[in-house]
């Protein structure tokens, strides 16, 4: 199942912390699309996700100061 989390306007660490929280509620195999506008988040979320054991499927710049990350929950 694909979930979406919009954290536009959030700076670190809020964008990462909110992503962490949201991932907790997902089932294994679920995907989460995170939409954000803060540059550092494009580095912080993937680094955190890999360390936590989740899959980073895609990090994409979608526009002026806009990005999307697609994660897949791989561990409980």
């Amino acid at each position: 199942m694909l979930h979406t989390l919009d954290v536009k306007g959030e700076v670190c660490p809020y964008s990462t912390v909110k992503t962490k929280k949201k991932m907790k509620d997902l089932a294994i195999g679920d995907q989460l699309k995170v939409i954000f506008d803060y540059p550092l988040t494009a580095e912080e979320i993937p680094r955190w996700a890999e360390k936590a054991g989740h899959k980073v499927i895609e990090v994409k710049k979608t526009g002026d100061a806009e990005w999307e990350i697609l994660l897949e929950k791989a561990v409980a």
């Binding site: 536009k8 306007g9 959030e10 700076v11 506008d37 540059p39 710049k61 526009g63 002026d64 100061a65």
Partner: peptide, 8 residues
């Protein structure tokens, strides 16, 4: 392409 007025 990272400059834009934005906020919480």
């Amino acid at each position: 392409g990272e400059a834009k007025l934005r906020g919480p």
